[in-house]
Write a protein that binds this DNA or RNA. Structure first.
Lengths: 137, 137
DNA sequence: CAGTATCCAGATCGATACTG
DNA sequence: CAGTATCGATCTGGATACTG
């Protein structure tokens, strides 16, 4: 493990290099996107839509994304739509119908989130141990 | 692109399967870890420590993580330490010296964050275009 | 049905002052 | 030097009521 740290560090420097190539605005946008992924509902909502593999109405989404409020779901959906990760189609009917569908970009994003999420999930026992040691001091 | 959506969706279902295997507490911890990655300072601090490839003192860290307050940096460092992503070594000297170092686990985490971050950074132009279209309506 | 509008509680974070 | 303590502005998000 002596130089594995060095390897990893170098790999991380590549990210910084890639980031430095971005303008201030672009760097901010990158950060914003990454932060959105971790907010309370975005990833979950996106995952539900991916799982569904088809359109879902607002109320169905609220049922599946357990615990979300109307306000938060609306806000989440607007942000996802704005970034092109989902589409929102309104049907001129009574009662109104609105269908949300994940886009190719949204699916691509999820495919890049997956490895990280899996690693974290697999590492949970490790984190639990570390925390217990930390608290035992 | 007809069935690429299906492929991606199936891949995402694997995540859900992996997540379902976790207990409530573990799932919560996974979410908590992922969310921490996106908070304002954690990832940046971790990246600085990875880049440094060696110990850094509190004040040096504050200089490099531009804009962070003492309070936020302290909180961030405690959380990272608690999860075993960095170590904190105190030297019994006057004036006191405290050195922070990234751990192997921290480096491993960064290596899994990198691909996602890079993809988002590369996709920034796409997001910018999408947003402009969205606002033009 | 699919929202919007309003109010409110809790968390977050920076600035500032102080300390072992 | 490396924090802690405190205050206040800001943000987030839930609950509730209302609407095209």
């Amino acid at each position: 493990m002596g130089n594995s740290g060095k390897v990893e560090a170098n790999r991380w420097e590549e990210i910084n290099a890639a980031c430095d190539a971005l303008s201030e605005t672009e760097e901010e946008l990158t950060r914003e996107m990454v932060m959105r992924l971790a907010d309370k509902w975005s990833l979950w909502t996106l995952a539900i839509l991916a799982e569904e593999d088809g359109p879902l109405r607002f109320t169905r989404l609220m049922e599946r994304v357990e615990g979300v409020s109307q306000k938060s779901l609306t806000k989440t959906l607007r942000a996802l739509e704005r970034d092109g990760l989902i589409t929102r189609q309104i049907f001129a009917e009574v009662p109104p119908r609105v269908e949300y569908t994940i886009t190719a970009l949204g699916l691509e994003l999820l495919s890049h989130v997956e490895p990280l999420w899996n690693w974290v999930a697999r590492s949970v026992p490790q984190f639990q141990r570390t925390r217990q040691e930390f608290e035992a001091r």
